[in-house]
Amino acid sequence: MDIKDLVLQTLKENFTDSIIEITDFRNDLSITVKQEKLFELAKFLKENENLLFEMCKDVTAIDWATRKNRFTVVYHLYSFKLNFNLRLKSNLETEPYQIQSVTPIWQSANWYERETYDMYGIEFINHPDLRRMYMPEGFEYHPLRKDFPVLGIPESLPLPQKPE
């Protein structure tokens, strides 16, 4: 059986009503899941004998710059057993933008989620250490949001004085 079918079938058997959308663009399989079910589904993907998505390669988010459904959180998973990349997505519908952290499942998600928090201001519930990753602690904005200018906000990051 094709790996894609295997993944889809196994998921559909167990999570029919939590899957919102399935797309297959340029041979990348991507599954959109309901926000509440994401953690459960992720756990299933890792622990299911046939799938074993053991590595979380990346967590990020997309800012759609719309009022509703503003953010989509994206996870890239990899299974050594199937040699297959899977993309999970979950839309965050309303404020506050929060989602269950997957760090308990994959340790690697720890920093990815911190980065996403830093860049988009999405809060990950149950994250062990949700601090900013790159920007200094006292910085007030989230740079990758679409309403943040590329050149930054003047005076938000102070510089030392020039000597003399």
């Binding site: 601090r131 200094p136 602690e137 006292g138 910085f139 990051l157 102070p158 030392p160």
Partner: peptide, 11 residues
């Protein structure tokens, strides 16, 4: 202001 922005407290 520098102290406020670049604080290491959380670390």
């Amino acid at each position: 202001k520098i102290k406020k922005v670049y604080s290491d407290e959380k670390i």
